[in-house]
Design a protein around this nucleic acid. Structure first.
Lengths: 218, 218
DNA sequence: GTCTATACCGAGATAGAC
DNA sequence: GTCTATCTCGGTATAGAC
C-alpha cells in the first residue's frame, strides 16, 4: 500500500496529506497516555503511532502538557456525545438507568479515559486539579443532584451521592480499564457488547436493588 | 543534625551507616512507583528519597525492574502480616468480615500497593504477568473458595467470586488509592482509622446485606 | 559497600530548509 | 504545515577509586 511513487518507499513513515493529523495525534495520545501515564508516555511514540513526526506535536499542541489536556478534552467530548441527559422528560429512575448503561458501554469502548483519570488520581498535581475542576466536578454535581432527588423519592440503595460516584467509576469502569489484569486472573468473560450490558446490570443491582421492576437476578 | 564532623557538611547527602539502606530504598521505591508508575519513576529520585546514591540501587537490586519486583514483594509481605487467615476455626462468615476489615485498613495505611497494581493493570506486560501469577492468583483462589463456600451456605449477595474480588479491590481499595482526586472532588471525609472501618462496612453492606446480624444502616 | 565520574540512550523542544 | 537536524536535559547502568 502506502502509494507507489517513484520516490523511495522505505521512508520512516509515508508523508501524510495533512488533513486529519490533529485527530490522529489525539487518538494516538489517548492510547499512549492511558498505557504509560503522562510521564511514561513519549511524544515520539505518540507521533509514530499517528503516522506523524515528533515535532508536529509541538507545532500543533505547543507542548506535551497541552497535548495531554487536549486529549482529555477530546475523550470527554466523545463521552458526552454518547451519554443521554439526566434531566429529560419522564421518570428520573429510567433516565438514571439509561445513563448508567451508556456510561458503562462507553467505558467498554473507550477504556482510555478511565485509565487516564486513574493514573492521575493518586498523586496531587496541577494536571489533577485541572482535570477535577474542569471535567469531573461539573459532572459529579449533576449525578449527585439526580441521585439525591431519587433518594428523596424513596428510590435507590442507602448510599450517599459520593459513594454512588465511587461505585460507578471504580467498580463500574474498572472492569474494562483493568481488562488485561482481569483477563490474566481468569475473570472477564470477553469484551463483547453484551458484556457491557451485563456489567451495567450488576452495578444497577447494587444501586437500585428493588426499583422499577429491577431485581437481583435469580 | 546529620553529624558535625570537620568534613564539609554540605554534602549532597550525609553518608549512611549502611544498615537499613535496602529497607529505606524499598520504602522510597514504593512511594515513587505508586506515584509515577514504573516508567515514570526514576531511580535518582528513589535514591534521593532514601538518602542514598543512585548507583546503590543497581548494587543492591541489579536493575530498576528488579527493584520494582522487590518492592511489590515487600508490600505483599506487609499485607500478609496484617491479614488474618480465612480458614481459621469458627464461622466462615466472621472470618470473611474480619479479613475484609483488615484489607480495607491495610489499603488505607498502605495505598501504595493498590496504586502500583492499578498502574500495571491496564496494559499487558511481563511485569503484569509476573504480578498476577506470583501474587494475585494465589490470593484470589483463597478468597474465591471462601466465597463459594459462603454462598453454598446461603450467605452473601448473588455475586460470583470474580465480581466480589472486583468489588473489593476496586470500590474497596480505590477509596484510599485515589484519595487525592476524591479529596479535590469533595468526597473523602478524612483519613482517620474510623474512615477505614466505615468504608469496610459500606463494602460489607453490599456483599453481606442480611448476614450475621449485619444490615444496611437505617 | 559506598561514592564519584561517566558512558550511553532516549526524552521534549526548537531552528530552519523546504 | 512538514520534515531533518540538533540542542539540552534527565534517565539507567557501569567502572573504578576508596
Amino acid at each position: 500500500m502506502t502509494r507507489a511513487t517513484t520516490a523511495p518507499a522505505d521512508r520512516t513513515r509515508a508523508r501524510r496529506p495533512s488533513e486529519s493529523i490533529v485527530a490522529d495525534l489525539l487518538e494516538a495520545a489517548a492510547v499512549e497516555f492511558a498505557a504509560h501515564g503522562f510521564a511514561g508516555a513519549s511524544t515520539r511514540r505518540i507521533a509514530q503511532r499517528a503516522g506523524a513526526h515528533q515535532p508536529q506535536i509541538n507545532y500543533h499542541f505547543t507542548s506535551k502538557e497541552q497535548l495531554w489536556r487536549a486529549t482529555v478534552d477530546h475523550l470527554f467530548t466523545l463521552m458526552d456525545a454518547a451519554l443521554p441527559a439526566l434531566d429529560r422528560p419522564g421518570p428520573l429512575g429510567h433516565a438514571f438507568v439509561d445513563l448508567l448503561h451508556a456510561f458503562i458501554r462507553f467505558s467498554a469502548e473507550h477504556p482510555e479515559l478511565d485509565r487516564i483519570i486513574n493514573l492521575e488520581a493518586t498523586v496531587p498535581s496541577a494536571r489533577l486539579e485541572w482535570l477535577v475542576a474542569t471535567h469531573l466536578t461539573p459532572r459529579f454535581e449533576v449525578v449527585a443532584a439526580g441521585w439525591r432527588q431519587l433518594r428523596s423519592e424513596g428510590v435507590g440503595a442507602d448510599l450517599t451521592a459520593g459513594e454512588v460516584w465511587e461505585l460507578i467509576t471504580s467498580f463500574g469502569a474498572m472492569h474494562f480499564a483493568n481488562a488485561p489484569m482481569l483477563s490474566l486472573l481468569g475473570i472477564h468473560e470477553g469484551d463483547g457488547r453484551s458484556e457491557a450490558e451485563a456489567h451495567a446490570e450488576r452495578v444497577l443491582a447494587v444501586l437500585l436493588p428493588t426499583a422499577t421492576g429491577r431485581a437481583p437476578a435469580p
